[in-house]
């Protein structure tokens, strides 16, 4: 994949693609959620040296997706952040804070 390339994938392809990119020697850079009109737009970024590539996942509001924290260990922080602040439903996170990563008074997720 080229630097800066964004590959749109379906929710079912996330884990196989993550396994493949892990095998290619990439590491996780960040996971970012954006609220869209119908649901969420998730961007998973991976880097190998100076090359940065992204997976894009467009999911409807109530869809449950799989965690990649058992493939990329640092993913648990990003996924918990997304669960906490955006309310995306992510299953099987290695350390699941159940929406309590951010210790804030206001009720999350922020809609």
């Amino acid at each position: 994949m080229k630097d800066g390339q964004i590959l749109s994938i379906g929710p079912g392809d996330l884990v196989p693609n993550a396994l493949q990119i892990k095998h290619d020697g990439y590491r996780l850079v960040q996971i970012c959620a954006t609220r869209t009109k119908t649901g969420y737009d998730l961007i998973y970024s991976f880097a190998k040296e100076y090359t940065l590539v992204h997976f894009r996942l467009d999911i409807p509001e109530n869809m449950e997706i799989m965690s990649i924290s058992n493939i990329f260990e640092p993913a648990f922080l990003y996924e918990n952040e997304i669960v906490d602040l955006f309310g995306v439903k992510i299953n099987l996170i290695s350390i699941d804070y159940k929406g309590q990563l951010y210790r804030i008074q206001k009720k999350t997720p922020f809609k």
Binding site: V29, Q30, C32, T34, R35, E73, P74, F76, L77, Y78
Partner: peptide, 13 residues
């Protein structure tokens, strides 16, 4: 959307 992935967040693990 503006998202900032800050260095400390990445260094926590």
């Amino acid at each position: 959307r503006v998202r900032v992935r800050t260095p400390t967040f990445a260094n926590l693990p």
